[in-house]
C-alpha cells in the first residue's frame, strides 16, 4: 500500500520533470502542437504492441508508442517536403489519421472477448495508479537519458530554436537536431501517457513552460521554473486523483497546471512585455 503510493509519486515526478524539460525546448522551437500530434499518434503503436504481445507490458507498449510516434514525425516532414500545405494542416491531418487508426484498432480488440483491453482505455485519459515497480525503473532510465541529453545539448537546441539559419551556417545539422528533439518528445509522451493519457499529454509539455515564460526571459530560470511548475503540478494532480476515487489522473494534473498558469497571469496582471 505504502509502496504503491511511493511508486505513483516518483513516477509522476519523473514524468513531470522530463515533460517540463522537453516541453521547454518544443515551446522555444514553436513546435508545441507537434507534441500534440505526437501524443495522439502513439495510440496505434500502443494498441498494436498490445495486440502482438498480448500483454500490458510497459516496455513493449513504449516501444510500440515510440515506433508510431516516429512514423508520425516522419509523415509530417514528408508532407512538408512533398506538398504545399501549411504546417497546421499537415500536423492536424497526421494527428487525426493516426488517432483514428488507433481508435479503430482499439475498437477491434474491444470487440474481441479476451480480457485486458480495459487497461488500454486508460491510455486515453491516463491512470497513474496502474504503475508498478518495473515501470518505475524504465521511467527512471528514460528520464535519465532525457536529462543527460538536455544537459549536454541545451545550448545547441536553444540556439537552433532562436536562429536556425545561423546554426546551419555554422555547420550544425538541422536534421540531427530535429531528430534529437523529436525523439525526446516521443519518449516523454510515451512515458507520460500512462499518467495523463493521450489526449492531454501535450498540456504537460506546454503549460509549465508557458507559465514560466510569463515570469522570466532568461533560459536558466525558464528551465528551473518550468521544472518546478511541471513537477509540482503533476504531484499535486495525481495526489488529488488518488484521493477522489473516480477521477482520472490526466485532467486532474492539467487542471492544477492550468490553475497555476492562470494565477500567475492574474498575479502579474501587467503583461510581462510591458515590464521594463
Amino acid at each position: 500500500m505504502d509502496l504503491s503510493i511511493w511508486i505513483v509519486f516518483i513516477g509522476t515526478a519523473l514524468i513531470g520533470i522530463s515533460a517540463a524539460l522537453v516541453g521547454t525546448f518544443t515551446f522555444l522551437q514553436k513546435k508545441s502542437l507537434i507534441g500534440d500530434a505526437i501524443s495522439h499518434s502513439i495510440l496505434p503503436g500502443i494498441v498494436l504492441a498490445y495486440m502482438i504481445s498480448g500483454q500490458r507490458n510497459t516496455l513493449i507498449l513504449m516501444l510500440g508508442a515510440f515506433f508510431s510516434g516516429w512514423l508520425a514525425t516522419q509523415q509530417i516532414s514528408w508532407l512538408q517536403r512533398k506538398t504545399k500545405l501549411k504546417s497546421d494542416t499537415i500536423v492536424a491531418a497526421t494527428l487525426s489519421i493516426f488517432f483514428a487508426l488507433g481508435l479503430a484498432m482499439l475498437s477491434y480488440i474491444q470487440g474481441r472477448p479476451d480480457d485486458g483491453q480495459a487497461g488500454l482505455s486508460d491510455f486515453l485519459f491516463g491512470k497513474i495508479a496502474a504503475l508498478n515497480i518495473e515501470d518505475l525503473y524504465l521511467f527512471a532510465t528514460v528520464s535519465a537519458l532525457i536529462i543527460a541529453v538536455t544537459f549536454f545539448r541545451y545550448r545547441v537546441m536553444f540556439s537552433f530554436a532562436f536562429n536556425k539559419e545561423f546554426m546551419i551556417s555554422k555547420g550544425f545539422s538541422l536534421r540531427w537536431n530535429d531528430f534529437i528533439l523529436n525523439s525526446m518528445t516521443i519518449l516523454v509522451v510515451a512515458m507520460g501517457v500512462q499518467a495523463v493519457g493521450v489526449v492531454l499529454m501535450s498540456a504537460l509539455l506546454i503549460i509549465p513552460v508557458l507559465t514560466a515564460r510569463m515570469l522570466t526571459y532568461q533560459l536558466r530560470s525558464l528551465i528551473t521554473l518550468s521544472l518546478i511548475f511541471g513537477t509540482g503540478s503533476s504531484l499535486a494532480g495525481s495526489y488529488i486523483s488518488i484521493l477522489g476515487k473516480n477521477i482520472p489522473t490526466g485532467p486532474c494534473i492539467i487542471m492544477v497546471l492550468s490553475m497555476c498558469a492562470i494565477s500567475v497571469a492574474l498575479l502579474l496582471r501587467v503583461p510581462f512585455k510591458i515590464k521594463k
Binding site: A203, P251, S258, K273
Partner: peptide
C-alpha cells in the same frame, strides 16, 4: 495581451477547457 506564441496559446486553451470538461 500576453504575447504568447500561437501554438502554445492554442495548446493551453484547449487542453485546459477539455480537462475541465472531462473532470
Amino acid at each position: 495581451k500576453w504575447r504568447i506564441q500561437e501554438d502554445a496559446a492554442i495548446g493551453f486553451t484547449f487542453t485546459f477547457l477539455f480537462a475541465l470538461g472531462v473532470l
